[in-house]
Amino acid sequence: MNVKLNNRDPVYLQIVRYFKEKIAIGEFEPGEEIPSRRELANRMKINPNTAQRAYKEMEEQGLIYTEKNHPSKITTDKMTLGMVREELLVEAVDTFVTSVRSINVPVDELLDLVKEKYTGNDDKEA
């Protein structure tokens, strides 16, 4: 568990995002136990209050749940899990679209390029 935190975004949201990414790629499995607040603070080198706040936010968003006297766990709710993936995806695409729009490329040309690059990258990584 290692993440480079930036100084400008709220730390608790960076933590939440980190969890979402891990959930989306399946590194955190549904129902998996997650570290205690204290442990998280320690590993991420953040203030325990911030860790607490991140967990509270994730609980509110339904990403994790806590039964009495048990460690918190990743949600097993399929819909929430699906939404996490979608949210990250939409967010990334949004960012991409915003930056690419200024170049004013026809959509088809753009899609071809995306396809080429995306699969090309896949090959390289594989």
């Binding site: 400008r8 975004d9 730390v11």
Partner: peptide, 13 residues
Amino acid sequence: EEARENEGKSVID
């Protein structure tokens, strides 16, 4: 944390 959340500023900013 509020400065980061509300204004997008780091402490150094």
